[in-house]
Amino acid sequence: MLKAEHITVRYGEHTVVDDLSFSLQEGQWLMLVGPNGAGKSTLIEAIAQGVPYTGSMALCGRDIRRIRPAQLAQQLGVLSQRNTVGYAYTVAEVVSLGRYAYTTGIFSRQDKDGQAQVEQALALTGLTELRHASVLTLSGGELQRVFLAQVFAQNPRLLILDEPANHLDLVYQKHIFSLIAQWLRQPGRAVLSVVHDLSLAKRYGTHAVLMDQGRCAAQGDISTVLTPEALQQVYSLDVYAWMNEMLSQWKKP
């Protein structure tokens, strides 16, 4: 579905993503993992055509640079990490904007499925009750769910999520990750997400790209990427020992 080859992103002299290639097939959930500053969010912005890059990227066989923004938004939904709203829009107004890409033509402003998709997205993310609330009054977690609902309303084939568990408490983390897993079960869909919590990555991901200083340290099936050796090398920490130590605190007395 998505094939990226030799992607390089530079900010001035500084190379943030360095010659990275990967591919993503239908039904896969690709986890981008790696320490802070590894270039994960920049790579996601490059896929979303938000930063200039060299190399090539193809979405369903088409050069992504040649796809018009509205067409691209019908294929690719992005949930970014920093979502803030300055004006008092209602939850429903923000979620409805997810349908923008379907109503851009001069003669095609009617979006038959639109309202149903918006209602479904609100219901899935537990926001139906809050639909008339101003987004300025919401907590960080609620706002994150609003933007997730917007991406669901957008109904793309490929979901790109930058830290979807950001600001979410444990209950909503579980809820949202299960929702995305359920969303992925429909044929013709795929998910690419940046996740810091390696347990979540291991639990929900099918594949992974482990990034280190802009480069790909390992990639492939999730179980072959998140190995003790690879993680220790990238994080300079015995990740497995640390995870086990954390878990051991929860043993029943």
Binding site: A48, Q49, G50, P69, A70, Q71, L72, A73, Q74, G77, V78, S80, R82, N83, T84, V85, Y87, Y89, V94, L97, G98, Y100, A101, T104, F147, Q150, V151, Q154
Partner: peptide, 10 residues
């Protein structure tokens, strides 16, 4: 709502 969000929705 945000320029990045505007680009993401098309």
């Amino acid at each position: 709502i945000g320029e990045d969000n505007a680009r993401h929705i098309g």
